[in-house]
């Protein structure tokens, strides 16, 4: 094979590769759009009036996740299933956002941490790599960390809205999450960087809880809640 032929062959490969990337980018853009819509719906829980509407907002968000599922379905058709990691960078960001949104919805509904299988079900994807388009464990964890900072914001705003019990529940939840993350041996990668931010969220929520308990506001909540 001559040099020119060889380079022709490689060039053909490279442009095919570029076409695939182009297709993926288009679908990812629509996914990002839907993710933003869901976020907008969920943002209203920070409004004082929004606390009563949590169930309806969650229902609306869940409807939008149907769109996400069809969009991810079309994303799956854009590239060979076994080359997931080759193009991973293209959807990594949006997938983490979607995990965050799914986890947030589930938290608002049940106040528990969404399990990975559940997120995968909401997004219409797999957990195990062998079965096709899957949810990488690092992306799942990153999404959960985004949720942690959203919850610290929610704790502050729920006090403003006069809901004094919620910060305590959030505090318990975040503490549990924190001890979970402590179990992981993270490398010096983006996930680790994000995890380093978790302690500030924990601190902020603890401050809110402190403020409440020093004023006796937490006590009535406590007697009303757990006791």
């Amino acid at each position: 094979m001559s040099v020119t032929e060889m380079f022709n062959y490689i060039q053909g490969f490279l442009s095919a590769d570029q076409d695939v990337r182009e297709d993926i980018r288009k679908v990812v853009q629509t996914l990002e759009q839907t993710a933003r819509e869901i976020l907008t719906v969920l943002q209203s829980v920070h409004q004082p009036s929004g606390f009563k509407e949590i169930p309806s907002k969650c229902a609306k968000a869940r409807e939008l996740f149907c769109t996400v599922r069809t969009q991810i379905c079309s994303l799956k058709t854009k590239f060979p299933a076994e080359q997931y990691y080759r193009f991973h960078e293209h959807w990594r960001f949006v997938l983490q956002r979607l995990v965050f949104l799914a986890a947030f919805v589930v938290y608002l509904e049940t106040e528990t941490l969404v399990i990975r299988e559940e997120v995968a079900k909401i997004l219409g994807i797999e957990v195990v790599r062998e079965k096709g388009f899957h949810l990488d464990v690092e992306d799942y964890l990153a999404g959960v960390l985004i949720m942690a900072s959203e919850l610290s914001r929610l704790a502050v705003n729920s006090v403003t809205a006069g809901d004094y019990t919620r910060p305590l529940r959030i505090s318990n939840f975040i503490n549990e999450l924190d001890s979970g993350f402590r179990l992981l041996n993270l490398k010096n990668d983006p996930l680790r960087k994000r995890y380093d931010g978790l302690k500030y969220d924990v601190k902020k929520i603890e401050e809110v809880v402190y403020d409440l308990s020093i004023r006796g506001l937490a006590k009535e909540a406590e007697t009303g809640g757990d006791k």
């Binding site: 399990i115 549990e176 924190d178 001890s179 979970g180 179990l183 992981l184």
Partner: peptide, 25 residues
């Protein structure tokens, strides 16, 4: 109680993270 809850080895969150720990390692 609080401390127990955060380090409770039987809690579902901790159990899940133990699995993640293995997977990541």
């Amino acid at each position: 109680q609080d401390r127990d809850a955060s380090a409770d080895p039987s809690s579902p969150v901790i159990a899940a993270f133990k699995v993640f720990q293995q997977e990541l390692d």
